[in-house]
């Protein structure tokens, strides 16, 4: 269809790139995990629990990164009406939601030994939680329509509205938090981080990014192929009616693109 014209470029390009990206991601993940779990020093205060950081922090970055990506896709779909933008936004949402959920879960697991509680209404945690709600709202919206294209378009509009709101939400949560800051909670240290810890952190972040691109490409390819199948179904190719029973045009007409007329 018309919308496939450019997607085919996408399919070809990503098809060629895929093996390299996969290989790179596997290497990065292996290296990152080795450094994070074995190769990096134990924190003098936190002990081995510090190793949660190597999952937690990159996941948090990815959670935000994916939302920014979605909003950009939404903007592209709004401005250039490019169908791939909608599909990309739609494919990104579950990945971003998973990373955000992972951040919250690992944060909770980390917080228990460190702060003695599973959850605190810390500004960062709360913002992440709201981000997760925004993801869930988006996913619920795009799946709520019978026409997938309509769902994607509505989703793109929502992603943009959400993106305008994210800084406001972040700001208001920070403001709210400084007012209600519980005294006992110490925040994680600032930018002072040892290079031996920074290296695995960055490697893990790149590995996560690679993983995201792999999943994104797979999901977009899946969606494109599903659209093709639907198009073929609508065109009447998969009709099981015996051809001999009527003339071919009639069959294509009724079973094909004109079946199920709407407005």
């Amino acid at each position: 269809m018309h919308r496939f014209a450019k997607p085919s470029v996408f399919l070809k390009l990503t098809g060629a790139m895929m093996p390299w990206v996969v290989a790179l991601t596997v290497i990065l993940t292996a290296a990152g995990l080795y450094l994070a779990l074995i190769g990096s020093p134990v924190d003098y205060q936190q002990g081995n629990t510090v190793r949660i950081m190597y999952i937690h922090v990159p996941a948090a970055w990815m959670g935000l990164f994916c939302y920014v990506g979605m909003a950009l896709c939404g903007a592209m779909s709004l401005i250039w009406k490019h169908p791939l933008a909608d599909i990309c936004a739609r494919a990104t949402a579950p990945v971003g939601a998973t990373f955000t959920a992972l951040t919250l879960i690992t944060g909770s697991l980390w917080g228990e030994p460190m702060w003695g509680t599973w959850w605190v209404w810390d500004a960062r945690l709360t913002s992440m939680l709201i981000l997760l709600f925004l993801y869930l709202g988006y996913i619920a919206l795009v799946n709520a329509f019978d026409d997938p294209e309509r769902g994607s378009k509505a989703g793109s509009a929502l992603a943009l509205v959400g993106a305008i709101n994210v800084p406001i939400v972040k700001f208001s949560v920070d403001w709210w938090n400084t007012l209600h800051q519980p005294a006992s909670v110490a925040r994680m240290g600032g930018p002072t981080i040892d290079p031996s810890m920074l290296a695995p952190l960055l490697i893990m972040a790149f590995a996560f990014t690679g993983y995201y691109f792999i999943v994104l490409v797979l999901r977009v390819r899946l969606e494109l192929n599903q659209r093709r199948i639907r198009a073929l179904q609508l065109s009447g190719l998969f009709d099981e009616r015996p051809v001999a029973s009527g003339d071919h045009d009639e069959l294509a007409y009724d079973q094909g693109h004109n079946a199920g007329a709407s407005k």
């Binding site: 269809m1 018309h2 496939f4 014209a5 085919s8 399919l11 070809k12 198009a231 073929l232 609508l234 065109s235 009447g236 190719l237 045009d249 294509a252 007409y253 094909g256 693109h257």
Partner: peptide
């Protein structure tokens, strides 16, 4: 017919 149109507007891939 959608089939023809698909082929006309789709690409080689």
């Amino acid at each position: 017919p959608m089939m023809e149109w698909l082929i006309e507007h789709d690409d080689e891939d």
